[in-house]
Nucleic acid binder design. Structure first.
Length: 292
DNA sequence: GAACCGTGGGT
DNA sequence: TACCCAAGGTT
């Protein structure tokens, strides 16, 4: 058994948060939706939106039968709205290619729109109980500290999967718990800013602690400035469309007072190019019904 | 591999 | 206040 597994499993049993997607029988569709929402959006903001989403669309086929614009509206202010579009596309693909059943095979999951290395393995492990390494930003930080003795992980890399694989016990059930426990530890104890090392189950094993908590060069890429950015303009345009939906908005009424008109127009064009908006006549609206 | 993609809470 | 950060993925 790898060194970290036993203390992680023991800690997780008593410290894990009670989250909706950990309830017994939550289902693969619910897991898939939760993982889409959790891509770069914090847990506490996801929970109410997840429950509303699953009430409205209890199965992939239910979502696939709605226009993609409805998904964008229901997504509300979760951020990165193309995730809503991608989740809708994935639902269509699940309906058309997998008889409406969320696939279990990692390669089949990876072939769905909006699903990458993390989400594919998270569904296979947490929804179906299979044995794979699951690596998210929490996992990478915990391994960087506990195993590599560094304060922060480098940028995401394929080799991260092998690093996590090395920490997994042989047993399928135990491996799934170690995956979840490593993420959970990074989320609530081994946090980015001020880790709670006095509460950490890995104090005896932690290479970063043993080395005296050295600072490490921060190799992560920094987020671009948001204020004044094209992203901000896109967000504002899309909020206008969501608030008006299902009605279209006349183009002259889309952010008429935006300080940079060229930027506003660029935002509109890029949203149309992304499929997040449709320009019809002299109006703009959320995308309608090519779902069925 | 780097740039790009939203939004809000914590510090 | 300004900056950091968040269960990533696509191009």
């Amino acid at each position: 058994m790898p060194e970290l597994a036993a203390p992680l499993i023991a800690w997780y049993r008593e410290a894990a948060r009670d989250l909706p997607w950990r309830r017994a029988g939550f289902g693969a569709w619910g897991t898939l939706v939760s993982e889409f929402m959790l891509q770069q959006t914090p847990v506490n903001r996801v929970i109410p939106h997840l429950e509303a989403w699953l009430t409205r669309w209890p199965t992939p086929a239910d979502l696939a039968a709605s226009p993609p614009g409805d998904a964008v509206t229901q997504w509300a202010n979760l951020g990165y709205p193309r995730r809503a579009l991608w989740l809708h596309r994935a639902a269509v693909e699940i309906r058309d290619r997998h008889d409406g059943v969320v696939p279990r095979d990692v390669d089949a999951l990876l072939a769905l729109t909006g699903i990458g290395d993390y989400t594919a393995r998270a569904v296979a492990v947490f929804a179906y109980g299979d044995r794979h390494p699951v690596v998210d930003t929490n996992t990478r930080r915990v391994l960087a500290r506990a195993v590599d003795g560094r304060a922060q992980p480098g940028p995401p890399h394929k080799r991260d999967l092998a690093a996590m694989e090395a920490e997994l016990p042989d047993g399928v059930t135990e491996a799934a718990i170690v995956n979840a426990a490593t993420m959970e530890l990074g989320a609530i104890i081994c946090t980015a800013r001020s880790p709670k090392c006095d509460l950490c189950p890995l104090v005896a094993q932690c290479a970063w602690r043993a080395a005296g908590y050295p600072a490490s060069e921060d190799l992560r890429r920094k987020q671009a400035a948001y204020e004044g950015s094209d992203r901000q303009a896109r967000g504002a345009v899309l909020k206008t469309l969501r608030d008006a939906a299902p009605s279209p908005v006349p183009l002259f009424a889309v952010l008429p007072d935006w300080p940079d008109a060229a930027q506003r127009d660029r935002a509109i064009d890029s949203l149309v190019a992304d499929g997040l908006a449709e320009a019809i006549d002299d109006t703009l609206r959320l995308p309608g019904h090519p779902a069925t």
